[in-house]
Amino acid sequence: MIMKVHVLESLLTVAIATTVWSPAVFGFVVPRVNNHAAGSITALSANVGIFFGTSTGSTEEVADLIKAEFGDDADGPFDIEALEGPVKSTFEKYDALIVGTPTWNTGSDTERSGTGWDEIYYSTMQELNIKGKKVAVFGLGDQVSYAENYADAAGELHDVFESLGCQMCGYTSMEGYEHEDSKSIRGDKFCGLLCDMVNQEELTPERVENWVAQLRAEGFFEGGSAQGASAATAAPVPVTVNETPDGLFETIQEHSDMLDETIKVHGSTGFIPHYNGKTKSTMWVSPDGRSCYYTTEARSSSSVSM
């Protein structure tokens, strides 16, 4: 089959002679394919950044675990106190944000993190244009020593971003914790991932893994700037119909019989049809685009069975 198709390709080359063979000659609609996008995700992909504040390094450890789960799907993690450049431009360049904080000013109404977050909550961050961005919060606390104020600061971090019009994601169950109360509770859930590196450190890796999987399931990566559509979803681009070279289709028809017979023997070939309404002919192109043959409406009964 392949040998005969290549024979037809050679005949096409001779028949066309000095005419440059291109889809435009036949007036077909041909999909525009970006070869560099092959194997990439087909949905629009969000550009994600991971940010944290820390005092002892524990929040950074959790941020590193989150980054490991996200892999190349997220940038960071970045310490909020060590950002290079303005906070505004740094946050606004991302489609989605993962933000984390510990809790130190336990029981305080505001500025509860004891980190650089407290310095920008009600000043610099109020100037951010991040409405509609997806944001997920993680927080650390000691649920035994501070049972009534477990991870309070995560609640404030959540509320600041929510007040800026962000779409909050990643709420988690309170099951498995020993706290009595927390300012991070929203309804019957925590407002994000809460980790206790003092009393339940051994549970942190699994909690992080489950949380990242949850974010993926919630569509956290969808709706951002396109990283490139796959060839299968590329939009067709119409091309101009030019005059058909004299005698071309006569030559094609003469040699399509042997291809039809071979197709009957070997069944479906996976060739993709491109119909030309002007000539009433169909060009069948191989998946790799390197081989083709033609059928006409009069011979439609012998066309490839797709």
Rank of each mutant, 00 (worst) to 15 (best):
residue 173 S to G: 15
residue 36 H to R: 05
residue 280 K to N: 13
residue 303 S to I: 05
residue 104 W to Y: 09
residue 253 Q to K: 09
residue 175 E to N: 14
residue 140 L to N: 07
residue 301 S to D: 06
residue 40 S to P: 08
residue 49 G to W: 13
residue 199 N to S: 07
residue 226 A to G: 15
residue 272 I to R: 14
residue 248 L to R: 08
residue 304 V to K: 04
residue 18 T to R: 10
residue 158 H to S: 04
residue 299 R to S: 03
residue 179 H to R: 05
residue 173 S to V: 14
residue 224 G to P: 03
residue 94 Y to R: 14
residue 3 M to C: 02
residue 299 R to Y: 02
residue 187 G to K: 06
residue 237 V to N: 12
residue 287 P to L: 00
residue 119 E to V: 00
residue 296 T to D: 09
residue 259 L to N: 05
residue 38 A to P: 02
residue 97 L to S: 10
residue 167 Q to Y: 14
residue 251 T to F: 01
residue 26 F to A: 01
residue 139 G to I: 01
residue 99 V to R: 00
residue 92 E to M: 05
residue 240 T to A: 09
residue 48 V to F: 02
residue 58 S to Q: 15
residue 247 G to V: 09
residue 259 L to H: 02
residue 207 R to S: 01
residue 102 P to K: 01
residue 283 M to Y: 07
residue 279 T to G: 07
residue 208 V to G: 04
residue 286 S to R: 03
residue 90 T to P: 03
residue 127 E to S: 13
residue 127 E to C: 06
residue 257 D to K: 11
residue 98 I to E: 04
residue 296 T to G: 05
residue 24 A to W: 07
residue 231 A to L: 04
residue 239 V to G: 08
residue 75 D to S: 12
residue 236 P to G: 05
residue 210 N to P: 00
residue 50 I to T: 02
residue 193 L to N: 00
residue 238 P to G: 13
residue 302 S to N: 04
residue 148 E to T: 07
residue 104 W to H: 09
residue 13 T to R: 12
residue 8 L to F: 11
residue 154 A to Q: 05
residue 79 D to Q: 10
residue 167 Q to E: 15
residue 249 F to A: 04
residue 233 T to R: 03
residue 99 V to H: 01
residue 76 G to V: 00
residue 80 I to D: 00
residue 152 D to K: 04
residue 128 L to E: 01
residue 91 F to W: 06
residue 192 G to P: 06
residue 283 M to I: 13
residue 131 K to M: 11
residue 181 D to C: 10
residue 75 D to K: 09
residue 134 K to W: 09
residue 70 F to Q: 06
residue 156 E to D: 13
residue 61 E to H: 13
residue 288 D to T: 01
residue 140 L to E: 05
residue 29 V to H: 12
residue 177 Y to N: 08
residue 103 T to A: 03
residue 98 I to F: 03
residue 17 A to N: 14
residue 175 E to A: 14
residue 272 I to V: 15
residue 283 M to A: 09
residue 105 N to T: 00
residue 218 E to K: 09
residue 82 A to F: 14
residue 52 F to N: 04
residue 110 T to V: 12
residue 181 D to S: 15
residue 3 M to I: 11
residue 271 F to V: 08
residue 191 C to V: 06
residue 289 G to Q: 01
residue 181 D to E: 09
residue 267 G to D: 07
residue 157 L to H: 08
residue 306 M to L: 14
residue 25 V to E: 03
residue 140 L to S: 04
residue 181 D to P: 12
residue 86 P to D: 11
residue 113 S to C: 11
residue 10 S to V: 10
residue 282 T to L: 06
residue 305 S to L: 08
residue 141 G to N: 12
residue 261 E to R: 04
residue 159 D to V: 06
residue 274 H to F: 14
residue 251 T to I: 10
residue 196 D to L: 04
residue 212 V to P: 02
residue 89 S to Q: 15
residue 92 E to N: 05
residue 175 E to P: 03
residue 235 A to W: 07
residue 76 G to C: 01
residue 34 N to K: 10
residue 153 A to S: 08
residue 171 Y to D: 10
residue 207 R to V: 02
residue 97 L to M: 09
residue 54 T to F: 00
residue 108 S to C: 13
residue 203 L to H: 03
residue 233 T to N: 07
residue 161 F to V: 06
residue 88 K to F: 03
residue 302 S to A: 02
residue 222 E to R: 10
